[in-house]
Design a protein around this nucleic acid. Structure first.
Length: 195
DNA sequence: GACAAGATTAGCT
DNA sequence: GCTAATCTTGTCT
């Protein structure tokens, strides 16, 4: 399976292109001998050079330094005292761009996910939000600055996939840069965080 | 060293 | 729909 991993060229593309093309792809994590995988159903783009909501906008800090790495690097940060957010760095080194994975549809490792999220929650609440999907998949700060080209974490295009429609909207939970239509999700997918 | 804000979530009304 | 919880990061002193 690992040999199907997306190559660095995919992540070096324009950030909006990557954000849209990540929909339908499968994120795989194998850590502590437990495999879990999920289909990406919702993403948001953050673009350093003109986007005030991006952590890399107008500044190079300790936290945002990861965003200036080459496309395919993983950027994980802690927010609101409770949650991790999982991002994929895009474009060539030095650009400061990334795609936030906001929601996924569980494929493998459901036992692991329910154990992490709580045994009695409804299936559709397992991974339908940026903090929820990191908790379910077991993503924490130890993944920050790693890349998506290792057997322990990677993304691939499944062989068979039914067609889907992409919905484009503005992003959620931010106070600046609200006007940019940089959020994308798979229409009618029950794991999308919000309509 | 202090302080405010934040790419969220769960729980209650 | 509204709000508390919770703590890291960046900025200013």
């Amino acid at each position: 399976m690992f040999n199907k991993s997306l190559k660095v060229d995919f992540y070096l593309q324009d950030t909006l292109t990557v954000a849209k093309q990540l929909l339908g792809k499968i994120l795989v994590i194998q850590k502590n001998r437990i495999l879990r995988s999920a289909k990406i159903v919702e993403t948001e783009a953050y673009i350093g050079d003109h986007d005030p909501a991006c952590h890399a906008y107008g500044k190079f800090t300790n936290r945002s330094s990861t965003l200036y790495e080459e496309g395919g690097t993983i950027y994980v940060y802690f927010i609101y005292g409770n949650h991790y957010c999982f991002n994929v760095v895009t474009e060539p080194k030095g650009k400061g761009c990334a795609v936030l994975i906001r929601a996924v549809e569980p494929v493998e490792g459901l036992d692991f996910m329910f154990k992490k999220r709580g045994k009695n929650i409804p299936l559709h609440n397992l991974t339908n939000g940026p903090g929820k999907m990191t908790q379910a998949m077991g993503i924490d700060e130890s993944f920050n600055r790693k890349n998506l080209f290792t057997p322990s974490i990677y993304i691939f295009q499944p062989d068979y996939q039914s067609d889907f429609e992409i919905v484009t909207t503005t992003r959620i939970g931010i106070n600046v840069g609200k006007e940019f239509p940089y959020r994308f999700y798979i229409k009618n997918n029950p794991f999308v965080s919000r309509k």
